[in-house]
Structure formats: C-alpha cells, structure tokens
Amino acid sequence: MITLNGRIVDDADELSVAALLSRENYVSSRVAVECNGRIIPKAQYEHKQVTDGDVLEVVCFVGGG
C-alpha cells in the first residue's frame, strides 16, 4: 500500500516508478516525482521500485506560458 498525491493505492508495491506513472496515465516527460520528500531523478524511473508505505507526490505540468 502506498500513498499517491494523498490517495491510498493498494496494488502498486513492486512496480517501477515508470510502470506506476504509466498505469496512472501520466506522461513521464511532463512530471516531477517526489518519494518520501525526495525528488526521484528521471534516470531512476525505470529501475526504482515503489515499496510498501511510500508516500509519492506527482506534479504534472501542462503547456502554456
């Protein structure tokens, strides 16, 4: 069980960050992801696994400026 943007997600343990983002319909090039208060570098998305109890914040950007 993890927390994603304040929401409890039950079946995410052992997924990579990339797989979780894809499953939640995020475009990985447009997000910043923090895990337990620390930013996850993009280079780690493929191999870093989400583990039980993690608190994730995903910030997603849309275009315009």
């Binding site: 475009v27 447009r30 910043a32 930013i39 950007f61 275009g63």
Partner: peptide, 26 residues
C-alpha cells in the same frame, strides 16, 4: 511554455538545489 521543459527545469532544480524555492506554473 512547453510542459516537458517545465518538468525538466523543476526536476533539475530539485535534484541539484533541494533547498532552493521554486515557483512554477501550470
């Protein structure tokens, strides 16, 4: 303006300067 560039900058700043304040827009 571009969403990929926004994410790139915020990721880069958070990685290199975790204590710097960032005020972004979306």
């Amino acid at each position: 303006d571009q969403p990929d560039a926004k994410a790139m900058l915020v990721n880069g700043l958070r990685e290199h300067f975790p204590n710097k304040k960032i005020v972004a827009a979306s």
